[in-house]
Amino acid sequence: MTTLHVNGKTLTLDVPDDTPLLWALRDAAHLTGTKYGCGIAACGACTVHVDGQAVRSCVLPVSAVAGKQITTIEAVDGDAVGKAVQEAWRKLDVVQCGYCQSGQIMSAVGLLKVVKQPTDEDIDRAMAGNVCRCATYVRIRAAIHDAAASLA
């Protein structure tokens, strides 16, 4: 049994310690907004926040996040930055297939929490770990700028 603090709730999950957080969230907690894309932290589809930091949950065993606060896409609207990013994503119709977008949004929120008015270079650095095969990058960039402006 593993205890996780996810989206403000305490969950007791029947998963072994070596289970990556991704699979605990998806298969045990049924929080399926966080996606499996590669399993080697190379695409960012599994990005969640652990104590406010954007991390790749596919390579992070649950044993490493005991006692930490985990936020997933399902609860990212719990603060102003998350709300602003989701709103910008909707306004600009960033999504296409949508499968990577939870991870994109979690990475974008992670960036905007640290850098309030990111430059294109800041965005490239923060978002280069998130692959989008639909190549929605033009709009991801625009939406991050839009969210930053709305938060200013």
Binding site: K35, D93, G98
Partner: peptide, 21 residues
Amino acid sequence: VRRRDSAAKVNGSAQFTQDVH
């Protein structure tokens, strides 16, 4: 006229085959 699938794909609720339980 905006996309009809944006909202669900932005909040994690859109259902893909991988999400079926």
